[in-house]
């Protein structure tokens, strides 16, 4: 029970407080749940076009193209699984004790930074992969050099147009998470 004789306690409890808008909170909780569901669905649906391309073109694909696509789909599936696991973990740690929460938040942010770092590198290596893929196709199907270069050029422009904004977004998120992690580390030293 509270010791009302302690002047600090009495003063503390004199603060004016806000009444909660329970209806608004319920609505927001519903919205947040739908948002999480949407994010999870998007994460899974992103894999679908790749899988469909693989199934659609499978009969006409050479061994090189098949292996390449299997490799990309596998990496994306593992990445998606990891992101989904991380999302669940972030929600679960909110119910831990304060000390554990700070420690776990640091490790979650470290994981997020690792993912973003890997994503940044994969974006940077995307043009190299595109070059490797189209040169591979050119050699595999014995296409004329002009045809190969044309395909490669179009693919490189498309890749750069997609990758550049994505890379900037990753860089900004990385900087934000890094700062947040540093702040949590500073709080962890205060909680020791």
């Amino acid at each position: 029970m509270n010791d009302f004789t302690d002047p600090l306690n009495a003063l503390w409890l004199q603060q004016t407080t806000d009444d909660p808008n329970v209806y608004h909170i319920q609505q927001r909780a519903k919205w947040e749940r739908r948002k999480q569901l949407l994010y999870t669905t998007i994460d899974i649906l992103v894999l679908l076009p790749l899988a469909l391309i693989a199934l659609w073109f499978y009969p006409d694909m050479s061994l090189f193209e098949t292996l390449f696509l299997i490799g990309i789909v596998s990496i994306c599936a593992v990445y998606t699984g990891y992101i989904l696991w991380l999302r669940v973990r972030v929600i679960a740690i909110q119910r831990q004790s304060v000390r554990d929460f700070v420690t776990l938040s640091i490790s979650v942010l470290a994981l997020k930074l690792r993912i973003l770092s890997a994503t940044k590198w994969s974006i940077l290596t995307a043009p190299v992969i595109v070059i490797f893929f189209y040169v591979g196709i050119g050699v595999d199907r014995e296409l004329p050099i002009f045809e190969t270069v044309k395909l490669l050029g179009v693919a490189l422009v498309a890749t750069t147009a997609f990758c550049l904004p994505f890379w900037i977004w990753c860089k900004r998120r990385y900087a934000r998470f890094l700062q947040e992690k540093r702040n949590f580390e500073s709080l962890a030293t205060q909680n020791r």
């Binding site: 004016t16 119910r95 831990q96 304060v98 938040s105 700062q179």
Partner: peptide, 29 residues
């Protein structure tokens, strides 16, 4: 636990943002 963890996250997220602490706004009636 949930409330303090939210508070800690708030501090970690906003620690490096410009502060707008205006205590005159605080209604401490």
């Amino acid at each position: 636990r949930v409330a303090h963890n939210k508070g800690v996250s708030h501090v970690a997220y906003h620690a490096n943002r410009p502060k707008h602490a205006d205590m005159s706004e605080h209604s401490m009636d």
